[in-house]
Amino acid sequence: MAAIYTLYIIRKSGGLIYYYGSAGRMDTNDSLRVASLWHSMHANAISQQLSPVSGCLGIELLQADTFDLHCFQSLTGAKFFVVCESGAQHMENLLKFVYELYTDYVLKNPFYHMEMPIHCELFDINLTQAVEKDRVAFWADEIHIQLLSHFYSD
């Protein structure tokens, strides 16, 4: 199962504006710190100055011992990053889909102030659905494969 542990959205100045995930693992202050640390390493500062060739746009994938971190930066500077199980596939697509949800349900919400923490119920619902659907789709594939192997073994 492609487990998605957490999902962060940070605005272009580096502050955390959305956090999705099991709340018990990390408290609010820590998630804020982690988000701004990621921002400073990813953004104009560090990873780009160390690039051997020009045109570096920041870290896309960080592979740690126990998890993978995929990051997507929108043209306006908002960064979306997801912490998932090592080797999880199609996370770029998920991040782009989350970006789509963000533009639809957050940016088009007349009560949303730009660059402020996101409190939009519809966004929450759709995001949860997207993440869950990802798992369900994966399970569906698994079941399909099992059924096929069953079919062929008969």
């Binding site: 990873s47 690039s51 051997p52 570096c56 746009l57 960080l62 011992d65």
Partner: peptide
């Protein structure tokens, strides 16, 4: 961690 990837390296 063991690696990270950007678009250029």
């Amino acid at each position: 961690f063991h690696s990270f990837r950007t678009n250029t390296y």
